[in-house]
């Protein structure tokens, strides 16, 4: 199982009976074998409560469940695709960046206000993430989309990393993030360096950053 990278913008997944895949609706490019795609009204896993939760949180990207036996190619909008393998830890990612993920992963939504209270909510607004973000937990692979190439920066307790909120893609591991501001009088008079807000990630894990400051 898992995803194989065909090139930088396309991944191939093998589907075997009994193991589900979820992917963004319309992201299938081609498939071989006997594979069925069913739109998932709930927008992912869990019952009706999780569905309502996602609707409220505005993290309800239309998903479809992929089942059967065969191979499927995924890609979307010519965006770069990065495969991230999770082994027990949690990945935080925006729902619209999710291309596909394995059914073995547990999907959830996280309220940004739960990390840092009001500042967490402010952070979500400024970085364009909204008040909620999607989490995936467990063992399995995730395919994430980004504009331009993606690179990974490891985070260790001695080495916190600062990321431009617009270039931030996802992070995994035991990472705390907070919004750090470098606002000075220069920003007030319109002479800012364009780097007034940064996401400060500390703890241990990794952050994925895209080579562009454009949203999807």
């Amino acid at each position: 199982m898992g995803f194989r990278e065909i090139n930088s913008r396309m991944v191939e997944a093998t589907v075997v009976p009994g193991q589900k895949l979820f992917s963004q609706r319309g992201a299938m490019l081609a498939y071989k074998g006997d594979v069925s795609f069913t739109p998932n009204m709930a927008g992912g896993q869990g019952g009706i409560m999780s569905m309502i939760g996602r609707r409220v949180a505005n993290e309800d990207t239309p998903l479809m469940a992929v089942e059967g036996s065969g191979t499927v190619l995924f890609g979307h909008g010519g965006h770069h695709v990065q495969v991230i393998n999770l082994s027990g830890d949690t990945l935080c990612v925006e729902a619209d960046r999710l291309l596909a993920f394995e059914g073995t992963l547990q999907q959830g939504t996280m309220f940004l206000g739960s990390q840092g209270g009001v500042m967490g909510m402010v952070r979500g607004q400024i970085s364009g993430q909204g008040l909620f973000t999607t989490t995936l937990k467990g063992h399995g692979a995730v395919a994430v989309m980004a504009h331009g190439g993606v690179f990974e920066i490891p985070i260790t307790p001695q080495r916190p990393v600062h990321v431009d909120p617009q270039a931030y893609v996802a992070h995994h591991g035991d990472v705390r993030n907070k919004l750090s501001t470098a606002l000075g009088w220069r920003d007030m008079v319109g002479r800012g360096s364009g780097e007034a807000f940064q996401l400060e990630l500390s703890g241990s894990g990794a952050v994925y950053v895209q080579a562009s400051e454009e949203k999807l």
């Binding site: 920066i153 080495r159 916190p160 990393v161 600062h162 990321v163 431009d164 270039a167 470098a182 220069r186 002479r191 800012g192 360096s193 364009g194 780097e195 952050v207 950053v209 895209q210 080579a211 400051e213």
Partner: peptide
Amino acid sequence: KNGSMVAYDGQMAFKK
């Protein structure tokens, strides 16, 4: 170029 930083670690200061 203004605003071209995507990430950093350590201590950095940005000035226009």
